[in-house]
């Protein structure tokens, strides 16, 4: 199949690659650009492990064609930390023991990051709604909900 050029901004860096036409953004990120933070769980849009942000909106990278992302701003969990300083959500997931096997964690964190960007003070129902497209098979979700609420509190404390 013909290769097509794709060019976008990934976590602040300009990236360009040739990809198979029809291949997914997930494949481009993981196999071509070395960002393995989005995970391929089901590859059919049911688990949320591949969640990334495209131009500020949550997208399932396993269902997004790479060639539709030209000139887009793409963010993944790999770009959340500021050097050595973890993003408040990453710190909260660690503090709240919100990961066991860790496979859902990058997708959960992107879903939560999108929530906190549009609603810095979510309540429990908001958090449940925000992560309802992401499957976890270890934690029973409660520690993840607590971690997102913890990160929101940490944000509002540091902003005050």
């Amino acid at each position: 199949m013909a290769k097509v050029p794709v060019q976008f901004t990934l976590n602040g860096s300009e990236r360009a690659e040739f990809v198979e036409s029809g291949s997914t953004l997930l494949a481009a990120l993981r196999d071509k650009m070395g960002d393995t933070s989005p995970k391929g769980g089901c590859l059919q849009g049911t688990c949320g492990a591949c969640t990334v942000m495209v131009d500020g909106e949550l997208r399932l990278s396993c269902l997004t064609l790479a060639e539709t992302c030209n000139d887009a701003q793409i963010r993944t969990t790999a770009g959340l930390a500021n050097g050595e300083v973890l993003h408040p959500l990453q710190r909260a997931f660690e503090d709240a023991f919100a990961a066991q096997c860790g496979f859902c964690t990058p997708g959960m964190i992107m879903a939560a990051a999108a929530l906190l960007e549009r609603n810095p003070n979510p309540d429990r129902a908001d958090v449940v709604e925000a992560i309802s497209g992401n499957v976890c098979r270890c934690t029973g979700y409660e520690p993840i909900i607590q971690a997102v609420l913890l990160a929101a509190r940490a944000n509002s404390t540091s902003a005050a």
């Binding site: 769980g41 089901c42 059919q44 049911t46 688990c47 958090v127 449940v128 709604e129 992560i131 309802s132 499957v135 098979r137 029973g140 979700y141 409660e142 993840i144 909900i145």
Partner: peptide, 17 residues
């Protein structure tokens, strides 16, 4: 066959634990 059909409680179905 997939996560939609193999049911488990989601974050909205949690019992007080």
């Amino acid at each position: 066959r997939d996560y939609n059909e193999y049911l488990m409680p989601g974050p909205g179905d949690l019992a007080e634990t």
